[in-house]
Amino acid sequence: MASAYIIHLLILICIYLILSLSLNLSVGYSGVLNLGHIAFYGLGAYTSALMALAGVPFLLCLLAGGLVAMFSGFLLALPTDKIKGDYLALVTVGFSFIIYSLMLNLDEVTRGPLGLPGIPRPSIFGFGFEDNFSFLILIAVITLAVYFIIQRIADSPFGKLLEAVRDDELAAKILGKDTFKAKAFSLAISAFFAGIAGALYASYITFIDPSSFSLMQIIPIISIVIIGGLASLPGTVLATIILTLIPEALRFVGFPSSILGPMRQIIYALILLLILIYRPRGFLGKVELE
């Protein structure tokens, strides 16, 4: 029993890791304050779930989930050349609202608030990941791959270009850089991984409904990125683990689950507020959020 619970927690941590590492690429490295990350996550989940329910093999569903999210990430990047700062953040919020309301209202496709049940567990070349332990191994491998890919991007000259755009976009332009292309790429890649996370989530829980993808769900993830530190991948990992475990502690104190849910949200939001007020660089970050 206890080990089943730990496996479940580890899987959740992996999903959060993919989400927050990819968000750090767009928010931390290229400085695009993207509050619509959950929309990418949801697009990945719904795309892959619908395909999986239609009998498409898992790997294709996973890829399609990533690609659909990636494409929408590119679309969301289009206005970044003109709109900056808090208005851009609002555009991403609006984007999140739209995707959420599509999930809720496109009844014929998404079954609206009823959600999509019976999503098959992953199966790769005949090997099924029916039990949670094998699923954990699958998602751990993918999470590691995502970590190394994002780290490699961050360390490459392209990653330095992203940081330059974040620090001073005009100065980067004056050095002849196509800053729009850089931001569009980073947002698209970031969205791709969020889509992958969504596809994995859908195939793990085997049921999705719009409530997992509302705007408010961005709070834990943005908290992780800010608490761990912008442009700090080890910080993100540490923060993901801590933030996933803290609310679990409440479970042992013995609160009923009807109180546990909202309490967890309050804890995330409070931690985020305290960090924003007292330690805007996060714990392992060198970059101040602006």
Partner: peptide, 30 residues
């Protein structure tokens, strides 16, 4: 007010306001 004191940008205040909204909603629920 504390955020304004440390000259936080409108983006930071925007994030914090979403957090506050989440807290209020969760309070209602609780």
């Amino acid at each position: 007010q504390p955020l304004r004191k440390r000259r936080a940008s409108p983006v930071i205040i925007l994030i914090s306001s979403v957090s506050v909204l989440l807290i209020l909603e969760s309070l209602n629920l609780m």
